[in-house]
Amino acid sequence: MTEDGGSAGTRTGRLERVREVVAVVMLSLTAILTAWCGFQASKWSGQMSIQFSAASSVRIHSIDLASEARDVQAVDLAIYTQWIQARASGDEDLADYVSARFTPEFAVAFEDWQDHGEELRSPFAEPSYVPEGRAEAAAASDEASQKFAAALESNQRGDNYQLLTVLFALVLFFVAVSERNRVAWAGWFLLGAGILVASVGIVLVATFPVLV
């Protein structure tokens, strides 16, 4: 064997060893990243379940509050009907007696209604009429919507990590095939493709939120 041939063979052997070392490092790193993405996907999935449960609980509470508000409004309507009848009959004493039984919330709206010259059809149309429980029901409904939106966001984050596991599986494929390829340039090409895909995945992992 000539000196040039020996040097070329030595150089080729060194390049092959370098490729093997890089491949091992890539396989190890990708395995760790794949496990991490799987862990994060599982954590975000659990977070999503908790948030969906919380949203459902708050939604049920808001429905209960809205039902109580409707019950209070029904009572206000019944008492107001008695006041209308007393007023229509000209019995002012009875009308005063009935109006004294208005709930505090309806009494405010009733006073505003009279102050405005009874322009609206009834005190129930006054903006100031807010039966007990209605504001709380609206607040609970908004909270439930926020929790539901947060659950959807957690679900999306879990899906993102799941997609990354597929991406890193592609890296494992490229690197593993590069080790089996006997053509030097093809092996380096596949290894380079794996490194490129892994780099994209690492950048994405760095930008994703972490749940511990």
Score class of each variant (00 low, 15 high):
Leu172Glu: 09
Ala184Asp: 03
Leu164Asn: 10
Gly192Met: 05
Trp185Gly: 00
Val175Cys: 10
Ala169Ile: 08
Glu179Leu: 14
Ser145Trp: 04
Gln156Ile: 02
Asn160Arg: 15
Ala150Asn: 09
Ala176Glu: 04
Gly158Met: 13
Leu163Tyr: 12
Ser154Tyr: 03
Asn181Trp: 08
Phe168Thr: 10
Ala144Lys: 09
Gln156Tyr: 08
Leu191Asn: 11
Phe168Leu: 07
Leu170Phe: 04
Asn181Leu: 10
Gln156Gly: 04
Ser178Pro: 12
Leu190Tyr: 01
Asn155Thr: 12
Leu152Cys: 11
Ala186Trp: 07
Leu163Gly: 13
Leu164Glu: 14
Phe189Lys: 01
Arg157Ile: 13
Lys147Ala: 00
Ala151Thr: 09
Asn155Leu: 02
Trp188Leu: 08
Val171Arg: 03
Asn160Gln: 12
Tyr161Trp: 12
Tyr161Ser: 00
Leu152Ser: 07
Ala149Leu: 00
Tyr161Asn: 02
Ala150His: 10
Phe174Glu: 07
Gly158Lys: 06
Ala186Lys: 15
Glu153Thr: 09
Gln162Ala: 08
Gly187His: 01
Trp188Arg: 14
Gly192Thr: 07
Phe189Val: 00
Leu163Ile: 11
Ala151Ser: 13
Leu190Thr: 09
Ala149Val: 00
Thr165Leu: 06
Tyr161Gly: 03
Thr165Trp: 05
Arg157Lys: 14
Val177Glu: 11
Gly187Ala: 15
Gly158Cys: 10
Ala151Glu: 13
Leu167Pro: 00
Phe168Trp: 08
Leu164Met: 11
Gln156Ala: 14
Arg182Asn: 13
Phe189Pro: 00
Arg180Asp: 12
Phe189Trp: 04
Gln156Lys: 14
Leu164Gly: 02
Leu190Arg: 03
Leu191Ser: 15
Ser145Thr: 12
Ser178Cys: 05
Val175Asn: 11
Leu164Trp: 12
Gln162Phe: 10
Ala144Gly: 11
Phe173Ser: 14
Ala176Asn: 10
Leu152Tyr: 05
Phe148Met: 02
Asn160Phe: 03
Phe189Met: 04
Phe168Pro: 07
Val183Leu: 12
Ala149Phe: 00
Leu191Arg: 14
Trp185Gln: 08
Phe148Leu: 08
Phe148Val: 01
Asp159Gly: 06
Leu167Met: 06
Trp185Leu: 10
Ser145Met: 13
Ala149Gln: 01
Ser154Asn: 06
Ser145Phe: 07
Ser145Gly: 09
Gly187Gln: 05
Gly192Asp: 05
Val175Pro: 10
Ala149Glu: 00
Ala176Ile: 07
Trp188Tyr: 14
Glu153Asn: 05
Leu172Ile: 06
Asn155Trp: 08
Ser178Met: 15
Ala184Cys: 01
Asn155Cys: 07
Ala176Thr: 15
Tyr161Pro: 11
Ala184Trp: 03
Gly187Tyr: 03
Leu152Asp: 12
Glu153Val: 07
Val171Gly: 04
Phe189His: 03
Gln146Tyr: 06
Leu190Trp: 10
Ala184Leu: 06
Val175Ala: 14
Leu170His: 11
Phe168Met: 03
Ala184Gly: 02
Arg157Asp: 00
Leu167Ser: 08
Val171Asn: 07
Val166Arg: 07
Ser178Gly: 06
Gln146Gly: 01
Asn160Ser: 15
Glu143Tyr: 06
Gly192Ser: 10
Glu143Asn: 08
Glu143Ile: 12
Ala151Arg: 09
Val175Leu: 05
Gln146Ser: 05
Ala151His: 10
Ala169Asn: 15
Ala176Pro: 04
Ala150Ile: 09
Glu153Ile: 01
Trp188Ser: 08
Phe148Lys: 02
Gly192Glu: 00
Leu170Tyr: 08
Ser178Val: 06
Asn155Glu: 15
